[in-house]
Amino acid sequence: MPPLQPAQRVAVLADSQNLYHSAQSVYSQNIDYAALLDKGVQDRELTRAIAYVIRAQSEDEDRFFDALRDIGFETKIKAIKTFGDGSKKADWDVGMSLDAVSLADHIDTIVLCTGDGDFSRLCRHLRHEGVRVEVMAFEESAATELVDAADSFVDLSERTETFLL
């Protein structure tokens, strides 16, 4: 896999639901998305930054979406689905994976900001295609198979003063 170089083209894909729930369950705090993006890019050439978010009709979510855009993220918004039995579902796993595969020919490195083990197969596929894969997540809630499948792992828990608000 290509080593870290300033000329690398980077895409940062942030699984906002996973990050939010991890930060809340472990620290009862929110993510600093500006710091997350800065660390993900690391002085390389940013090609795309996408935050995958869920519209849950909660107060302040529009301000959050606007803040993400102000930081430099493109936002992809999906409404939460409620089923007849009252259960709810909302995730961007397929959408993030399709975007990552679509971007692979245009980037050197992809930074997946998630701890979701469902992305381990995506990591292996991207690496097979010659794309460097970096994962940023909280170690306490990051799936071992995801960490093992990536070229590098940034544990957000090691610098909570940087990555949490």
Rank of each mutant, 00 (worst) to 15 (best):
M1Q: 13
M1H: 13
P2A: 13
P3R: 12
Q5L: 15
Q5P: 01
P6A: 14
A7F: 11
Q8E: 14
R9F: 08
V10D: 04
A11H: 05
A11R: 01
V12S: 02
V12W: 02
A14Y: 03
A14P: 01
A14H: 02
D15E: 08
D15L: 05
S16P: 02
Q17P: 04
Y20T: 08
A23G: 08
S25N: 12
V26N: 06
V26G: 06
Y27V: 05
Y27T: 03
Q29K: 15
N30R: 15
I31A: 04
D32N: 15
D32A: 04
Y33W: 14
A34M: 12
A34W: 03
L36F: 00
K39W: 08
G40K: 02
G40P: 00
V41L: 10
Q42I: 04
D43M: 14
R44W: 07
R48H: 12
R48D: 06
A49F: 03
I50H: 00
Y52D: 02
Y52L: 10
V53T: 04
R55Y: 10
A56C: 10
A56L: 09
A56T: 12
Q57C: 06
Q57K: 12
S58C: 08
S58D: 10
D60E: 15
D60V: 13
E61T: 05
R63F: 11
R63I: 12
F64A: 01
D66S: 14
D66E: 12
L68S: 04
I71D: 07
I71C: 00
G72K: 07
G72S: 06
E74L: 15
T75S: 07
K76L: 14
K76P: 02
K76T: 09
I77T: 08
K78P: 03
K78C: 08
I80L: 15
K81W: 09
T82F: 09
T82E: 14
G84C: 05
G84D: 12
D85K: 15
G86P: 09
G86N: 11
S87M: 13
K88C: 09
A90I: 10
W92Y: 07
V94P: 09
G95K: 10
M96A: 00
L98D: 09
D99I: 04
L103E: 05
A104I: 11
A104H: 10
D105W: 07
H106Q: 15
H106W: 12
T109R: 09
T109M: 10
I110G: 01
T114W: 05
T114Y: 06
T114C: 11
D116L: 01
D118P: 05
F119Q: 03
R121S: 13
C123Y: 02
C123P: 01
R124C: 06
R124W: 06
H125F: 03
H125N: 06
R127Y: 02
H128S: 11
V131I: 14
M136C: 01
A137E: 03
F138S: 03
E139I: 10
S141N: 09
A143M: 04
A143S: 15
E145K: 12
L146I: 11
V147W: 00
V147H: 06
A149N: 04
S152L: 00
S152A: 14
S152I: 00
F153G: 03
F153H: 06
V154S: 06
L156Y: 05
S157M: 12
S157E: 11
R159C: 05
E161P: 06
T162E: 10
T162M: 12
L164F: 07
